[in-house]
């Protein structure tokens, strides 16, 4: 076995095991970071097939995404901030059946699908080729969508930060009124 296949198997086992851990642990925080470990493992596998831009981007995006999830966790959970131990599965009888069914279906697909043969070789600069294949013919659309998303984000922040706890236009209640 080459060093690459050793690394692949280590990362694959790590990803699958931490994927299982998401449903086994009894804490929201542990589940979140088990999921993150799993996804980072997948990102690192991309480095093994020389798609370094995609791989590093997956790591970057998944870490940020999980941190945003931590914010929402405290905002919306009934169980206060997920601080209490809790079960990570719902519908514990039906879910394994559905999961096993989907798994068997996918495995059957792996063996029954006619896989295409590889044509051509990898490009010299995969990052450049990736950019062209995503953006090339649709550059204008991508740019407009990008600017629209950014404008939405900034205007949301404008609306949200104006009403900070200490910054509002309302006069603050005096101490004797405050009770």
């Amino acid at each position: 076995m080459t060093l690459q296949s050793v690394a692949f198997w280590v990362l694959a086992v790590l990803s699958a095991a931490s994927g299982v851990a998401v449903f086994v642990v009894d804490s929201m925080a542990r589940a979140t970071f088990a999921l993150l470990t799993s996804l980072v493992g997948v990102g690192l596998v991309f480095l093994l097939i020389d798609l370094s831009y995609l791989g590093v981007l997956i790591v970057l995006m998944m870490v940020m995404e999980m941190m945003v999830m931590a914010v929402f966790m405290i905002m919306y959970m009934m169980n206060p901030a997920g601080l209490m131990p809790m079960k990570m599965v719902h519908n514990s009888r039906g879910a394994p059946l559905i999961a096993a069914g989907v798994f068997l279906l996918l495995v059957a697909g792996v063996f029954l699908a006619p896989w295409p043969r590889r044509r051509g070789g990898p490009p010299a600069d995969p990052t450049h080729a990736l950019g062209l294949s995503i953006m090339g013919p649709k550059m204008l659309v991508m740019m407009v969508v990008g600017v629209a998303i950014l404008a939405t984000m900034i205007s949301t922040t404008v609306l949200a930060t104006h009403r900070g706890r200490y910054d509002g236009d309302r006069p603050r209640p005096r101490p004797e009124e405050g009770r």
Binding site: F33, S52, V56, L57, L60, V63, M67, T127
Partner: peptide, 15 residues
Amino acid sequence: VGVVWFNAMEVCVWG
């Protein structure tokens, strides 16, 4: 992609 790598590692600090 060193610049992106640097960025990714520094986001891990949040975690």
